[in-house]
Amino acid sequence: MTATPAERRVTRASAVPDVPAFDTAGLDAPVREALAELLLTMADDEFVLGFWDSEWTGIAPMLEEDVAFSSLAQDELGHARVLYEMLAQLTGGDADAIAFGRPVDGYRHCRLLDHPRTDWAFSVARRWLYDTADAVRLGALRRSSFAPLAEVVAKIRREETYHLMHMDVWLRRLAGGGEEPRRRLEDALAKLWPDALSPFAPLAGEHALLEAGILGQPMAELAERHLAQATATLAGLGIALAGGRVTGSPPSTVDGRDRAVPAESFRWLWNEFTMVHRSEEGATW
């Protein structure tokens, strides 16, 4: 029986991943395990952020931002997809199953992404914090000895530049936008600041990644660099982080909740984004 072009396309699309095949023979077990952890945490970060972004589709405060946040969401899900596919190839799993088939407490996104969408200022503050952190993390991977990752990172960084640029404009707009926007921004930063370094929570296999040259610098070093950058930008906007309203507890990468126990808000989001997958498991279309 001959398949119609449409049928062929669906089969083809699900059978062939968007990442080229790579050779994992040169990676010994501890390195492979550490790399899998790194890929999973990065993919989960992008995936979860993409879904939070998509929560603005249709209800953003202005049409331009509706378009922008929907596009940001699509970018992040695209990045997550490639990272999940790479992970699936590494571990012999299936990218869709990893993305949608895990229980709610199986996700490893950072704490910064464990807060609900909240208001516009909150989403801007969180995205700005995440994007500045992500730029640092991607910088530490661009010369990764694991070539498939270095290649994808080179591409992702060019896209993330637009994200960071966009969020930087919004951060400045809210900071200088009068009493209420400023207050909302500061409230959001106060709430998020303790989790500002959480994208750099230590990885179990970090030593192996550093030894193998897969990760350029230790997470602790990246966290410090991010902290210095974020603090400098905020100080430039007159947002004091020491003694000002924004200092609640100081940011830390470690507090026992690192990439482990999801908050109630994430349970709600997980329920949303896995709903279709759970309704008919194993379905293809």
Partner: peptide
């Protein structure tokens, strides 16, 4: 080469 990592048109282009 995909123009963007998440480009939804890549599968279509390929086929």
């Amino acid at each position: 080469l995909p123009t963007f990592v998440g480009c939804p048109a890549v599968d279509l282009m390929r086929s």
